[in-house]
Design a protein around this nucleic acid. Structure first.
Lengths: 223, 223
DNA sequence: GTCTATAATGAGATAGAC
DNA sequence: GTCTATCTCATTATAGAC
């Protein structure tokens, strides 16, 4: 309520939001404090009032990212019919990955700029893989998919890789700057390619009914 | 033969080799000219005698990388039995990707440090995807795999992503610093997971006979 | 070809007035 | 909270002697 809460600086939030956009658009290594200040419309000195070190900006951004990611995972577990979960889950996941893509793409740079984040980054990835593993095992237990444990694990790893690097792939190979719903659907379709051959008739039916993965092969989607 | 050929500076080669190692190990953005000179065991001034700009080092390294990559692709097409090609191809590919992993991992940084490389990077990726597409189509034509064009294309994209980011995946998720043959076999096994469900009995037999992909599920391979 | 300077830049960060 | 002014420092790059 009062200014003392420290939460409502306004400027502080604008700095964070501006940084997220700048990092995403131009790369984490490329953005200087001068540029941040200019983009926010404040002075560099003021920037350092809000964040004593540049590193702190990254750390604060990461905390927000992690919270959002866990929210998506939790929401998936909490609500909805089993058959629509996968589609919603992938969409939510991809959406976040796009909003915070600099964390994926500039991992090496982030590591250098904020070494303290390393441990948390690993924890988050662990959780993501565990979520995926759980989802696949649950599908197998419910007769939607037929595969032994080794195959499930291999699928999980392949799916995690494709999902994690999908955004970077779009940018690198197709020059995609502005992602659309279509790009995310395309990613979901790619992911499905990994699971589909193992689906039972029942699994196939349920996924089709969910309507989550119907874009079919996506043609040359440029930009 | 004489010193005039410009090819045999010795120091020049040592600079390039040292840079490749430093970039791989510590990240392209992290390495300064001072550090390069120190690692090579020469003075910074001398470094600038051999490469007028730091950017030139990257460009020279990239030319070597591209040449090696094309050599692997060409060798695959030229020689050997069809059934052993896939395994050899993936090994050669992964091996190179490891030796030049900084080009994959620090793509964003490389782009900034040597903008002139962008076009060539894209060409190389185009060629890689085309190679993979051709290989899959040939397998389909020879009755080793059963899939329609859309499925083949989806497989190609998934395989390209897994292959391209495999090295980075090992480092990120498993802290792998020194890659072993086992890590590369593991990657080949992951790739096979994408194709395997589509193989015919004949295709399965040939791949097994090639002995290329037999590590089975790889357990916790650490470091 | 290799060295010892040294310049030139540009980044992160601070002090202190308003 | 915000600004102006300034500092410190690392990094790329050059000049010129050996």
């Amino acid at each position: 309520m009062a200014t003392t809460t420290g939460r409502r600086s306004g400027t502080r939030q604008r700095i964070l939001e501006t940084c997220r956009e700048l990092f995403n658009r131009r790369g984490t290594a490329d953005i200087t404090t001068a540029e941040i200040a200019a983009a926010v419309g404040i002075n560099e000195g003021n920037l350092y009032y809000h964040f004593k070190r540049k590193e702190q900006i990254l750390e604060t951004l990461f905390a927000a990212f992690a919270a959002e990611l866990r929210e998506v995972a939790a929401a998936d577990l909490a609500e909805g019919e089993a058959e629509t979960r996968a589609a919603r889950y992938f969409r939510g996941w991809f959406g976040l990955m796009w909003e915070w893509r600099f964390f994926y793409r500039d991992a090496m740079v982030v590591r250098r700029l904020a070494p303290g984040l390393q441990a948390e980054l690993e924890t988050l990835a662990d959780e993501g893989q565990a979520d995926l593993r759980r989802a696949l095992r649950s599908m197998a237990a419910n007769g939607l998919i037929v595969a032994d444990d080794d195959e499930l694990e291999r699928m999980m790893v392949n799916a995690w890789i494709v999902a994690t690097y999908w955004i970077d792939y779009l940018r690198m190979r197709h020059g995609v700057g502005d992602i659309t719903r279509r790009h995310l659907d395309w990613g979901a379709w790619q992911l499905m390619g990994i699971f589909e051959p193992y689906l039972t008739a029942e699994g196939r039916r349920l996924l089709a009914a969910a309507g989550g993965v119907r874009p079919g092969p996506v043609p040359e989607v440029q930009a």
